[in-house]
């Protein structure tokens, strides 16, 4: 259960293994966040509702993760918790609430430039949801 970082020259590849797709998406967001925060504890001071859509599951994951890069750059928001997560797998829609803090209260130097489709996988294996993706760092 959870996520791990795999070997990938230059960029960072992540594999997530969770009981269901909801948890797998949430874990993917935390993996992304951990690269930036490097295990620093982030306070849950601010809350935001987010809504993300896609054309298929891969683009839904891409857009969901990209939202956190957008929130960081444009709003100075860094993630600590995700609650009330709902995913519509037919309409490719996610609605959830994110909690976190102002990024300027911390000092981070590990940047994630972008989410990529490179080697992206979203699979159901036995009773597990497996997600793999590569970040441009």
């Amino acid at each position: 259960m959870g996520y791990k970082f795999l070997k990938h020259t230059g960029d960072i590849k992540i594999r997530v293994n969770e009981k269901n797709i909801e948890l797998a998406f949430i874990s993917s967001a935390f993996a992304l966040s951990q690269i930036i925060t490097d295990k620093t504890k982030i306070n849950s001071k601010i809350s935001k509702k987010i809504k993300v859509s896609g054309n298929d599951m891969s683009s839904l994951l891409y857009n969901f993760l990209e939202e956190f890069l957008f929130l960081l750059d444009a709003k100075g928001f860094i993630l600590s918790e995700i609650i009330n997560f709902k995913i519509d797998k037919k309409k490719f829609l996610i609605i959830c609430e994110v909690l976190g803090d102002k990024s300027k209260n911390y000092k981070f130097t590990n940047d994630v430039k972008a989410i990529t489709y490179h080697e992206m996988k979203i699979e159901q294996k036995n009773n597990y949801s497996v997600i793999e993706f590569v970040l441009d760092v």
């Binding site: 750059d73 981070f108 130097t109 940047d111």
Partner: peptide, 16 residues
């Protein structure tokens, strides 16, 4: 969306 990511960042070295 791109512009709102750019506005606060002009004049900064970045990271990585």
């Amino acid at each position: 969306r791109a512009k709102s990511r750019g506005i606060p960042q002009l004049g900064s070295l970045g990271a990585g």
